[in-house]
Simulated scan of single mutants.
Amino acid sequence: MKTRITISDVANHANVSKSTVSQYLNKRFDYMGESTKNRIEEAIKELGYQPNAVARSLKQKSTSTIGVIVANILHAFSTQVIRAIEDYCNEYDFHIIVCNADDDPVKERKYIEMLLAKQVDGLIIFPTTGNVELYQKLVDSDYPLVFLDRNVENVDVPVIQLDNVKASKLAVQHFVEKGYQRIAIMTTSLELGVAPRIERINGFKEAIKEHSLVIRDEYVKGLKVEEVQDGLKKMLSMDEPPEAILASNDLILMEVLKYVKAHSIKVPEELAIIGIDDVSFASVYNPALTTIAQPTFVMGTQAAELLIEKLQNKESKIDPVYRYEPTLISRDSC
């Protein structure tokens, strides 16, 4: 049976003390000569030494791991943000564990409890908004926590968000400039009161009023994804159907595109479309899709930066809300 190589073996092989090897492993090189570093590095390679991550985490009271709980991993926004978080954490030698809550508060709670049991150092959550007491418990215990995409009322956690009201206003303004007056918006379910969905509808309504157009309730829908096809059929079968539709996120946009293809609706001649979230295929779809883009990589990086800053300096003062500007990318669907 192969004997496990220990830090003492590395120290003896490199002719240094155990504490010097420990400083090397923790990247504390301030008072370490280049030759010493090289000897330790060679000893680790020659002996095949693997640091005991569990023992190190117990000693340092840190697992160098961050939990990321996304509300729905199917959103392009989610996957792009996760990539940015992972890139930033990798630079600082933090690992991430990604969990998908499926917009289900029960599932989200289980993941939070599981990650806490694994002693992750902090959490980045795209909150379902359905676990307010648990969020507040984390805040009260001064647990490092950042919300992304969604805020939760009365829970004092740093939040990284798009200016959702402005996103809808940019879309409506573009529709109006193109000559459309009967404009609709469709978003995913409003049952949980998810902030971006409500803010985008509020921004839409404000913009409609600002352009002296009529807000029609039949043109404003919040539906479960599986209900969208029926919702579109009802909306577009009206005596005065909308001439243009704002898809409030990429999942709704996909459903709208499925519908127009299935019913041979010409875009933009018969229905103009703008989607919030610049999906990867927007520029190659025919016609190319006009979208409202979020700075996803900047937002993900900011979330990771805030959390790691909090981990490294518990006393650091962090702003409560970070709002990012949307960008209209004009193409051919409107």
Rank of each mutant, 00 (worst) to 15 (best):
S212N: 14
K59H: 10
N12W: 04
N100I: 08
S19A: 15
E108K: 03
R182I: 05
V81G: 04
Q173S: 15
I124K: 00
N15P: 04
R83I: 10
A101K: 00
D163F: 10
S35E: 15
I97C: 01
P196W: 02
D156R: 08
E325R: 10
E177G: 03
E227Y: 01
A244V: 10
R323V: 10
L190Y: 14
V70C: 03
Y135I: 01
Y322G: 02
K233G: 05
K110Q: 14
M299G: 02
S78H: 09
P127R: 00
P196E: 06
T187W: 01
Y88F: 09
D156M: 07
K205A: 06
N26A: 12
S316V: 14
T291D: 02
R83M: 11
I201N: 02
V68D: 00
L306Q: 04
A303R: 01
D149V: 03
P268T: 11
R4I: 15
G48C: 03
R109V: 06
M32Q: 04
S8M: 10
I276H: 01
E269F: 08
D102I: 13
L257V: 10
Y285F: 15
I198M: 13
D104K: 01
P326Q: 12
K37E: 14
I245W: 01
L257H: 05
K37A: 13
K314D: 09
I97F: 02
H174G: 03
R39V: 13
Y88L: 04
L116S: 12
V214H: 12
A71S: 15
S8I: 14
V321A: 04
K224N: 15
A244S: 15
L306I: 14
R331H: 02
E46S: 11
R331Q: 02
D163S: 14
V165C: 14
L25Q: 05
S212V: 06
D278P: 03
N52C: 12
S19D: 10
E226C: 09
N313P: 09
D278C: 04
E46T: 12
K45C: 04
I292Q: 06
I96E: 05
N249G: 04
E243K: 11
T20S: 15
T291Q: 00
L145K: 00
L213I: 09
N313M: 13
H13R: 13
L192P: 01
N12S: 14
A11P: 07
V10L: 03
N151K: 12
L170M: 12
H263Y: 11
F204N: 00
M186T: 01
T63L: 05
D156A: 10
D250K: 06
I82M: 06
H75K: 09
L192H: 08
A184T: 02
L192Y: 07
N164I: 07
